[in-house]
Write a protein that binds this DNA or RNA. Structure first.
Lengths: 205, 205
DNA sequence: GTCTATACGTCGATAGAC
DNA sequence: GTCTATCGACGTATAGAC
């Protein structure tokens, strides 16, 4: 859900008085994404982002409501389909999909850091924007992966004696957790562990 | 490393002028743990913690140096051996150990929240206390679990064709990630996914 | 050594001018 | 639609009372 205030991107709502505002919002978002990708979530205050973008911090709250909503918007926009460099192959296993994702994430540590911050914030009370983002992402990701698991159990690429929902949750958890370990210590066997999980999920010989 | 300023707990350094300060520090820590366990990491400011404990916020920095170091001390003290309700069985598999840990964590969501915050903070630059805590915890935990894996591969409880270090990283990652998913959404199959991982790691029939 | 009082700069949010 | 001004709260630092 890149932007829930735009109800339907099909009918271009950007017209008249709205056009400039929406364009400006997008402009700010694009600039903020660059800042985050290169510098991570240090200097993450409304004021320092505003400084980089070239507006006052009050302008940011005008467009985004709060810092938290700005952060969510930055993350979602930067991972929106179309901005991702390469779509995963259609026959990739769930773990292979996450391996590819981990590989491309290494180029943009700042966004992974932002993701981690958002999830941690979502666990606290009184942060509805972050919570909505995090629960929505996990729910959708698990559902999508579980569907892939079911399909690949049919085609024999994944063993049939495992619960697709449990596999989906496990793969997401392993992927996130290993990403964290690797960011803290590059000697953590991120790829080896993911490859291991992939192998364990394939049918026994 | 609960307190690196105390070089050796064997020779009781708490004497004379030090005794009161150490006792007071412990008192503050104990009270802070209660606050976190019940209320989570909301109200986490130096000032609000000080209010609960009954001192000024400057007293906290006197004992702990900074907010970050206080948070680390709270988490480490609250998970110190002896404060844990029950030691894991000696013959438990790594995943079973994490299952037991997850079970007991459900009683103290605030501390899990604190852990998550600390790890997220550690990923940012310029937070040495959190980074030291997080890297230390992951390194030690992985080493400990890898050792268990090796032992249990010998005794036939874990399949021999997996790399102990990769297994350790995978189990830690899955455990952390599933904990997060469950905190955000209790319908996430935390236990099922851990049980699945446990089964996958056992020798094929 | 223990702890309070106080001050500094920054923060997110908001009100109101233009 | 964007600014300036202002608010209360924050983490940190320091001086000095005891």
């Amino acid at each position: 859900m890149p932007d829930e205030t735009l109800e339907n991107p099909e009918q271009p709502r950007a017209r008249g008085a709205y056009a400039k505002g929406i364009a400006r919002r997008q402009e700010i978002l694009d600039r903020a994404i660059e800042v985050f990708a290169e510098r991570g979530s240090d200097r993450t205050s409304l004021r320092s982002i505003a400084r980089e973008v070239g507006v006052t911090h009050a302008a940011l709250t005008h467009y985004f409501g709060s810092l938290e909503e700005l952060l969510v918007a930055v993350y979602e926009e930067s991972t929106a389909p179309g901005r991702q460099p390469d779509a995963p192959a259609d026959d990739a296993t769930p773990v292979e999909m996450m391996i590819e994702s981990a590989r491309s994430n290494r180029a943009i540590p700042g966004l992974v850091q932002l993701y981690s911050t958002l999830v941690a914030t979502a666990l606290e009370e009184g942060h509805p924007a972050a919570r909505t983002f995090a629960t929505g992402r996990f729910t959708r990701l698990r559902a999508r992966l579980a569907e892939v698991v079911r399909r690949q159990q049919e085609s024999g690429r994944i063993r049939k004696d495992v619960d697709p929902d449990a596999v989906a949750a496990l793969v997401v958890a392993a992927s996130d957790g290993l990403q964290t370990q690797w960011l803290l210590d590059e000697s953590a066997p991120q790829h080896e562990a993911l490859a291991l999980l992939d192998r364990l999920l394939r049918p026994a010989l």
